[in-house]
């Protein structure tokens, strides 16, 4: 037996995926801490802030799955946020269907719309794709602004129900329930994306992202997988819309189908690091507090101060750290420790 086969044997004994023990422990502690946090310091603002961070992390993770895994840049991702919000809100308002089931309806409709949009869009490359998603996103807003069945511009007011908080998914006495719901979705989403990242599907999608011609020379049906990525991405976004709707209880085309949301999820991902599953968490943890704090300190009058900071930060990131804040963290901590 020669040296080379020894190395091969050793290579085959390596685990398929490396788990960095330290980071696993850190993640465990952080998750535990987040679950216990409301008992330690149930400040309303802190819970709201954390909830917004989780929610936006999931929303930009949805965007990140599409861009980071399959290389398609969407500028209209608010579509699926809006569909989620309207699905749960509409079916609860009109038919008293519990928002829990509404979430599922929202996911299903989003998946279907993603399929309808995704297939014709396959022919579009680069800027044509991005601009098309931008226009489709705004079209949804225009249509919902004028659709009487869903309240047109005024939107839907989710009827208040104080008797059965769990069934109506409305928690008026103590908003901490929203915190936990969002936290659970946040953890599930990240776990699923983490699994996706190391699954066969993940390998294929990343291949398409990096080099779609090479991917198709390796037996990957590029169009099919691009649509699959679009659908998965849409399905991640929709529940956040539903939860948001139940949280604010007012759904209108401007707070759901807004181009600002589409842009925000992109900015968060780029800030954190596109194509990295931690990127959205990092980006969200940096950008969301900026807007929440500026809302407190400057109130309604200075509403755009957060946007000034956002814009400048993003430009700086694009110029100096195009791979996002995550690239500042040493590689060994992020993934495989065994890089020779």
């Amino acid at each position: 037996m020669n040296l080379i086969s020894k190395e091969l044997l050793q290579a085959k004994n390596e685990p398929l995926n490396y788990f960095n023990k330290n980071s696993l422990i850190i993640i465990g502690i952080v998750v535990l801490g987040l679950f216990l946090y409301p008992f330690i310091s149930p400040s309303k603002f802190a819970l709201h802030l954390l909830m917004m961070i989780f929610m936006h992390a999931v929303m930009s993770q949805s965007w990140n799955v599409l861009a980071g895994f399959s290389g398609q840049i969407s500028l209209g991702h608010a579509i699926f946020f809006g569909i989620g919000a309207y699905a749960s809100g509409y079916f609860y308002t009109k038919f008293q269907i519990t928002p829990w089931f509404g979430i599922i309806i929202g996911i299903a409709i989003s998946a279907f719309i993603a399929l309808l949009i995704g297939v014709p869009m396959l022919r579009l490359k680069g800027h044509y794709f991005a601009i098309a998603t931008l226009l489709i996103g705004i079209s949804f807003q225009v249509i919902f602004q004028r659709w009487p069945e869903v309240g047109a511009s005024a939107g839907l007011y989710v009827p208040i129900n104080r008797d059965s908080p769990w069934l109506s998914m409305q928690f008026h006495k103590n908003k901490v329930a929203y915190y936990y719901i969002t936290l659970v979705f946040f953890i599930i989403t990240f776990f699923l994306v983490w699994l996706l990242n190391r699954s066969k599907l993940g390998y294929r999608l990343k291949a398409i992202r990096d080099q779609s011609e090479a991917a198709s020379s390796l037996g990957i049906h590029v169009s099919k997988y691009k649509v699959i990525a679009f659908i998965i991405s849409a399905m991640i976004m929709a529940p956040m819309g539903s939860i948001y709707a139940q949280y604010v209880l007012i759904i209108d085309p401007n707070n759901t189908f807004s181009a600002d949301i589409s842009i925000l999820v992109l900015l968060i991902s780029v800030m954190g690091g596109v194509g990295n599953i931690w990127g959205p968490i990092i980006g969200s943890s940096i950008l969301i507090p900026i807007s929440e704090f500026s809302r407190i300190y400057f109130g309604g009058t200075g509403r755009s101060i957060d946007l000034i900071i956002y814009g400048i930060l993003i430009i700086l990131i694009c110029i100096f750290r195009p791979s996002g804040i995550v690239s500042l963290i040493p590689r060994s901590f992020r993934e495989r420790e065994k890089v020779k």
Binding site: I73, L266, V274, G302, S304, Y310, G311, I312, I315, P322
Partner: peptide, 23 residues
């Protein structure tokens, strides 16, 4: 840079300009 970064930079510029105008 990649197309994404170029898109993001000009969007960042758009956000900044509009927010400054509002301010």
């Amino acid at each position: 840079s990649t197309m994404l970064i170029q898109i993001c930079a000009t969007f960042g510029l758009a956000v900044t300009i509009r927010a400054l105008a509002q301010f």
